[in-house]
Design a protein around this nucleic acid. Structure first.
Lengths: 129, 129
DNA sequence: CTCAACCTTCCCCTACACTGGAATGTCAAG
DNA sequence: CTTGACATTCCAGTGTAGGGGAAGGTTGAG
């Protein structure tokens, strides 16, 4: 199958497939006689795996690690479990940071909303912020 | 005061101050006879304002808007209140997205943790992901 | 024959907020 | 005199995940 078909099957663009090949996420596709990339169903499965990983918030470098392990013949499941574990911790961290930020901003907003025009002095640069 | 002092006082690098000047967040500093930038305490206050804005998660473009209003002599408080309001909505959105992602990843992690070695087939590319 | 729809490589561009480094100038201390 | 710590400008790169578009080759249909 040609790149356009493979891309459509995986819900990506042809640009993305070439980018993944350049990035080492996809092995270099074999070429037809006309020089066109020729993909097998396996490639689509691999692309879908990448898609699922991205949807889980994994970075391409992490997905590349998983695929490299697998390509080396190792079962990457333990590694994947580690990654997911880290990812979970990372998400918890991000969420708590954002919630802390939210409470700061909410406080600022409340203060700003309660300010009178008198307190809003151009010289003060919004001192509550 | 020279750029290094001002930067230290504001907890930034000299690179950052020059960057802010280029970006229109700081007015062009007046120069000493040797060509060095010469900062006043006001600049440090302004830098600290920028820092607080950044800490509140505002983008430099938003901070620039606030400062521009103030520089134009308008009290920017109403605008700041709008920005904070939007920022709050944005944070809520980000938090809910991250929490949704977290529950997906938690599910994947639980599945991965429950997998036996037998289910961990190198050919399967960790089918649970 | 021609046209549209594919494909190829190549290089640059995006947003964000800086950061690094080169080449050069200034100044106070030892 | 020299050394070291400052300062200046300017250009280029960082990381992320591709996107835009040029210039050209290939193929099937009408």
């Amino acid at each position: 199958m040609r790149i356009g078909e493979a891309a459509a099957a995986a819900g990506m663009t042809t640009k993305t497939l070439r980018f993944y090949e350049d990035s080492g996420l996809l092995p270099a596709a074999k070429r037809s006689s006309n020089g066109y990339r020729d993909y097998h169903d396996d490639s689509v499965a691999r692309l879908e795996f990448i898609r699922r990983g991205r949807a889980a918030g994994l970075a391409l470098t992490q997905i590349r690690e998983i695929l490299s392990l697998r390509d080396a013949g190792e079962a990457p499941c333990a590694h994947v479990q580690d990654l997911l574990s880290n990812q979970l911790a990372e998400l918890d961290h991000q969420i708590s940071e954002l919630m802390a930020l939210r409470s700061i901003v909410a406080g600022l907003h409340a203060t700003a909303a309660s300010g009178t025009d008198a307190s809003c002095d151009p010289e003060q640069i919004c001192s509550y912020l």
